[in-house]
Design a protein around this nucleic acid. Structure first.
Lengths: 226, 226
DNA sequence: ACAGATGTTAAACATTTGTTTATGATACTG
DNA sequence: CAGTATCATAAACAAATGTTTAACATCTGT
C-alpha cells in the first residue's frame, strides 16, 4: 500500500476538523447537550459526514475522549520523565505550554475529570503515582521535608495544581488574569511558592490556633469544649 | 388563608421529591443527559407531573439550580459570619457537615462550578471576597503572615478547598477515604495544616531550588539559560 | 354529601435527534 | 480519458424527547 494517501497529514482534514470542533463544543456544554447538527454546522460540514466518519455520535465522543486521554497520558509521561531527570516543570506549566497549540484541550480535560468517565478515573491515580514518586525522590534528596503521610500530602498538592484547570474561569475572573498563561502562571506560582515555602501562619508554632475561616483546620485530634 | 395546606411540610411531597431526584440525576450525568421520563421514573411519578409542577424541563433545571445556589449562598453567609466571629470552621468542614442531610448537593455544586452557569460564576467571586476578608482579619490579628498579594493567596487557598469538592471521587479512590466525611476530613486537614504551617521544603531558604515536579515553580522572575 | 380545588395519570402530539440511503462531486490511477 | 475509490451532501426515517390535553382520583370546606 502506497503512502500517497492524504492521511499523511491526517490533521487539518475534515475528519480532524470535526473531532476538534466537537471537542470544543463538548468541553463548553457537555457532550449530551451538543447535537450532531451543531457540530456539523460549526465544522462546516454536513451532519451525515460526522456519522460517516465516526460511525455514530458515541463513536465521535469516544474519539474525542480518546484523544484527550492520550494527551493526558503523554503529559503524565513527560511529567514523570522530568521528575526522574530532576528537570523543572510543574503540571500547570505543562498545561500552560500545550494550551497554546490546543486551546480546547484544557476545557475538555476539566470535563473529563468531573464527568468521571471510567477511562478518566484512572488518570488521576496515575498522575498521583507519578507525582508521589517525584516527591519521594525529592524527599530522599533532601529538597523537600518528609511528610507524615506522603501520599495524602501529594494528593493535596496535586489537587491544588489541578484546581487551576478546574477553576480556571473563576480564578481568571476573580483575580484578573489567567493563571494558565505563561505570564499569569508566573504571578500565580509566586504566591503558591510563598505558601509552600513559609506557610501561611505568622507563628509556625501556633498552628493549633482555632483560626477561623480559610485553612482546613481542626483535625479533630483534640476536642474543644463548647 | 388558612394554614391547613399540606405545604406546611413542603418537602417530602412529590414536588420536592421530583426536585431532589432531578438534582441527583443532574449531578451525576448533567442536565442535558437526563430525560424527563427518567426523572419521573426515578421519582415514582408520571412524566406529565414533572412538567405540570415546573412548567418545563428548563423550569425544573432552574428550580434545582436555584436551590443549589441558595444553599451555596447560605453557606457563604455562614462562612463569612464565622469569620467575623473568629469562629472555627473551614469551607470543607461546612460542606462535610451538610453533606449528610443532602448528599446530592455536593455533587451538583461540583457541576455548577464547572458548567459555569452565569448565576454560578459569581459564587466563586463572592466566596473569595468573604474568604479574603477573613484572611485580612486574621492577618491583622497577627495569626497569619501577611501575603505579598492577599487576593491571589486567598484565591489559591480557596481553590485548594474547593478542589476537595471537585475532585472528591478521584481523591477518595486514590487515598482510600472520602475527605468530605467527618473522619476523612480530619486526616486530610492534618496534611493540609502541615503544609500550611511548615511548607514542603526541607530548607525554607532554598526555595529557589529548581526542584522538579510537584510544586508550581519557576516564577520566571529569574531566567534560566538553556 | 356535594362542589370544587388539587394532585396525578395515560395517551396523543409536534419537534428534535441520531442515523440511513441514495446520489453527486473530486481527485488519483492505469 | 475512463475507472474507481474517497469525500461529501441532501433528503428521508425511525426513535426519542419535551410538552399538551383530557380525564381520573383524592381530599377540603361548607
Amino acid at each position: 500500500m502506497i503512502l500517497n494517501m492524504r492521511i499523511a497529514k491526517d490533521d487539518l482534514r475534515a475528519v480532524a476538523v470535526i473531532r476538534e470542533t466537537a471537542m470544543g463544543l463538548f468541553a463548553e456544554r457537555g457532550a449530551a447537550a451538543v447535537t450532531v447538527r451543531e457540530i456539523a454546522a460549526a465544522a462546516g460540514v454536513s451532519p451525515g459526514l460526522v456519522i460517516h466518519h465516526y460511525g455514530s455520535k458515541d463513536g465521535l465522543k469516544d474519539a474525542v475522549e480518546g484523544r484527550a486521554i492520550a494527551f493526558f497520558e503523554e503529559m503524565i509521561g513527560e511529567f514523570a520523565r522530568l521528575g526522574e531527570e530532576g528537570g523543572s516543570a510543574s503540571l500547570a506549566e505543562l498545561f500552560a505550554g500545550r494550551l497554546e497549540s490546543e486551546p480546547a484541550m484544557v476545557d475538555y480535560i476539566r470535563r473529563l475529570l468531573v464527568d468521571g468517565g471510567e477511562a478518566a478515573s484512572g488518570l488521576f491515580a496515575r498522575l498521583l503515582d507519578a507525582t508521589e514518586a517525584g516527591m519521594r525522590a525529592l524527599a530522599g534528596a533532601g529538597v523537600v521535608r518528609p511528610a507524615p503521610d506522603e501520599r495524602i500530602r501529594t494528593a493535596f498538592l496535586l489537587a491544588n495544581d489541578l484546581s487551576l484547570v478546574l477553576l480556571r474561569r473563576q480564578i481568571t475572573q476573580a483575580v484578573g488574569f489567567d493563571p494558565l498563561t505563561r505570564e499569569g502562571l508566573g504571578t500565580w506560582s509566586a504566591a503558591v511558592i510563598d505558601v509552600y515555602t513559609s506557610g501561611i501562619f505568622a507563628f509556625p508554632a501556633a498552628q493549633q490556633v482555632p483560626g477561623e475561616a480559610e485553612p482546613d483546620e481542626q483535625p479533630l485530634k483534640e476536642g474543644h469544649n463548647p
